[in-house]
């Protein structure tokens, strides 16, 4: 097998490993945390204040 052929296999193995890790973590978080907690992220908790540098009305 050529070097490039071996690199192709390495790329497949790395892709599969990383993808599996993400899916496993995604499932673990879903089981460990309440769905409401995960899906009610605060969008904007502050707006520019008068003291903030660079802001104008």
């Amino acid at each position: 097998m050529s070097v490039w052929g071996a690199l192709e296999i390495v790329a497949w193995v790395l892709s599969a490993g990383i993808a599996l890790w993400m899916v496993a973590d995604l499932v673990r978080v879903g089981r460990e945390y309440d769905e409401d907690f995960l899906t009610t992220a605060v969008e904007i908790d502050r707006v520019p204040t008068d003291d903030e540098e660079g802001g104008v009305r």
Binding site: W4, E8, I9, L14, S15, I18, A19
Partner: peptide, 18 residues
């Protein structure tokens, strides 16, 4: 040897997503 496009395109997307 002609290099296959699949593994490297896939790895780029998956690694950056990670």
């Amino acid at each position: 040897q002609g290099l296959s496009a699949y593994p490297f395109a896939t790895l780029a997307i998956v690694a950056l997503a990670f």
